[in-house]
Amino acid sequence: MQKITPYLWFDGQAEEAAAHYVSIFKNARVVDVARMGPEGPALTVTFEIDGQRFVALNGGPQFTFTEAVSLYVGCADQAEVDELWERLSEGGEKGQCGWLKDRYGLSWQVVPDVLGELMSDPDPRKAARVGQAMMTMTKIEIQGLRDAYAAAG
């Protein structure tokens, strides 16, 4: 059992949102739906993505998501970045540096794993060039990062 479980507050779309997220990620599933009465709407939907549990709560209109909290998704390659970027941003809003808001307003960071490797290079010029390249991107492009890294010498 994980020690910390993020609760995501929705205004009546908890079940829809959980099904949407589960449809996007390969290793994902709905674990449980707690309903308000036997046939009532969902109060909470527990779901997992790659072993990480989340609870989607139908809490009402009082609160909405802000960019102050985001979900970071590390991606193995450009194909994974491309797929998750398109699927998560569908009906939402694409931002800078791999950030996006999904159709429910939840912020995500879709980031290739190689970014961390390149930005932690001991040569500060290489790391800075990679960071500068990333700042010009919406969806992060691995080849663009590698080109910036190589150009730094």
Rank of each mutant, 00 (worst) to 15 (best):
G95H: 14
D50T: 08
R35Q: 03
A76R: 13
P61A: 15
G95A: 12
L43G: 09
W99N: 05
V130T: 01
F25H: 11
Q96G: 06
V45P: 03
R146S: 05
R29Y: 06
A28E: 15
R87H: 09
A28Y: 07
R129V: 01
P41E: 10
D50H: 10
D113S: 13
A150N: 14
V73M: 12
V81T: 12
G37T: 06
P124M: 14
R35W: 06
G105N: 05
Y104L: 15
M134Y: 00
A152F: 03
P112T: 11
V114D: 01
M36C: 12
D113H: 14
E39T: 14
Q132I: 06
L118P: 03
G74N: 12
L118C: 00
V81M: 11
M119Q: 03
E80R: 12
G91C: 12
A34E: 12
N58K: 12
Q132M: 12
K94G: 04
G40W: 11
A151M: 03
Q96F: 06
L43H: 10
M119L: 02
R103A: 08
Y104I: 05
Q62R: 15
A76H: 11
V22P: 06
G95P: 04
S120M: 13
V111Q: 14
Q52P: 05
F65H: 04
P61M: 06
E67I: 08
G40K: 00
R129N: 14
I140K: 08
A42G: 05
G37M: 09
V69R: 08
G59D: 02
R53C: 01
A152K: 01
A152G: 03
M137E: 10
V30N: 02
M135D: 09
E90M: 15
